[in-house]
Amino acid sequence: MANIKVIDVNVGVTAENDRLADAIRRRNLDNHTALFNMMASPGSGKTTLLLAIAETLREDFAIGVMEADIEATVDAEAMAAAGLRTMQVHTGGECAMDAAMTAKALDEFDGDDLDIIFLENVGNLVCPAEQDTGASRNVAILSIPEGDDKPLKYPLMFEICDAVIVSKIDTRMYFDFDDDAFRERVSELNPDCELFFLSAKTGEGVDAFCDWVKAQTLMVKKA
């Protein structure tokens, strides 16, 4: 072992991914496209919520949806049936999208003329938070049944988000979700994060989130 030479590397393993992610952000700024990375657990209502907000936003913006899943095409089929420009990305067993996969998907999507692209990430509160996809904005969705303690268990997800949505508020009566405790836990991790409470099913609170998406999109377009 005495003969072994050593190369001192000391580089963050995600450095290459971060470089690619920055390149995606630059490209989207040039194209005036806002890319929203939507992250959540399986079953939090990502697809239903996206259908609801796309319905409102499509009057003013050209919208595309990129569906990332380990397998299946059910989400993409639901989006396409609603008349949205859709693309299914299979991550090939990977538990989250990374910047290389997102760049490849953007190339194939040919979505440079779109105003907004929603990336529906793999359902998971851990891995998607670890990989920068190059999104303009990161959004986490947490449904009422999942509980107000999730920021304590998955802190990174709530640290990296620009907005957090609490979905399925129409199910409140069945669960003990403490809004104030949740608000406090999120703001401890991420004081600048915007918080939205909504139900895609009843439509309550959806407009406020759409207004935020609009404002963020216009910000990207003007930059």
Partner: peptide
């Protein structure tokens, strides 16, 4: 995640969030 002295959760993380390739050893 809770301060053992005062019980607060408010904190500044000083380390332990990185994942680095430190070095590569090569046989001659």
């Amino acid at each position: 995640g809770v301060c053992p002295v005062c019980g607060s959760r408010r904190k500044e993380i000083l380390g332990g969030q990185d994942f680095l390739l430190k070095e590569i050893g090569i046989c001659p």
